[in-house]
């Protein structure tokens, strides 16, 4: 069953993407509400919203998983948690890159600027830089890298609520109870939630693939140590 998990999630994600794309571009209206006047129509660039926000949700999920796993690793020193944190952070870097790039393209389409230093954008960039820092620490910080990186991961997780709650203070559409997602038109909801589900499966598939890779790295380290002890490697 464990071996089947990865292909199952990949298939579910692929089907989800196909359905989501159909719903986004064919079914979802550009009107905020049914029968809305032309004045309340959204621009075509709003189609970026469905994947951009779904990626942001997965970014937050990955950062949260990484932070919790890091906390558990620091408490128990069980390498299983470290593997999960490591995998989740690298996946978060990929999702974060998509959030920043698609957000920037959307900003250019909607506001005619590629980037502005408003609080949520700046905080998102800082979070992404912390995640990149985590990856670099894991690679170059030596024997204590796992513990230093775990601290960084917890630090990154604490930043997520600040990004999410920074609403109504900038040009970004609002989040939270009064936000865009909560008040989404009925015609747009299926497209959005199918996108979120598809990316959740995609996130799980990437997590499994990356955990397998992290375990393989651990095995390589152990085999190298053994080979050094036996004089096979010098």
């Amino acid at each position: 069953m464990k071996k089947l998990a990865l292909p199952i999630f990949v298939v579910l994600a692929s089907v989800g993407f196909a359905v989501a794309l159909w719903l986004i571009f064919i079914e979802a209206p550009l009107q905020v509400s049914a029968g809305a006047a032309r004045g309340s129509s959204l621009f075509f660039n709003q189609k970026i919203f469905f994947f951009h926000v779904a990626h942001a949700f997965m970014l937050f999920t990955a950062v949260f998983v990484s932070g919790v796993a890091s906390g558990l690793f620091l408490k128990t020193r069980n390498p299983k948690w470290d593997d999960i944190a490591n995998a989740a952070t690298e996946v978060a870097v990929a999702f974060g890159a998509v959030v920043l790039v698609t957000g920037s393209i959307w900003a250019k389409a909607a506001w005619d600027v590629w980037w502005n230093w408003e609080p949520r954008l700046t905080m998102s960039l800082l979070l992404w830089l912390i995640l990149v820092g985590y990856v670099l620490v894991r690679r170059f910080a030596g024997p204590s890298a796992d513990r230093v990186a775990a601290g960084m991961s917890i630090f990154g997780m604490v930043g997520v609520p600040f990004i999410y709650t920074m609403v109504g203070q900038d040009s970004h559409p609002a989040a939270g109870k009064e936000g865009v997602v909560a008040t989404l038109g009925a015609g747009m909801r299926p497209a959005f939630w199918i996108s979120v589900a598809a990316f959740l499966f995609w996130f799980l598939a990437l997590m499994i693939a990356r955990i397998q890779s992290v375990r393989a790295e651990r095995e390589v380290r152990e085999l190298r140590e053994k080979a050094l002890d036996m004089g096979v490697l010098s």
């Binding site: 621009f43 660039n45 393209i105 959307w106 389409a109 909607a110």
Partner: peptide
């Protein structure tokens, strides 16, 4: 802007 397909 309304029909901006390029950026999408």
């Amino acid at each position: 802007i309304e029909k901006d397909e390029k950026h999408v």
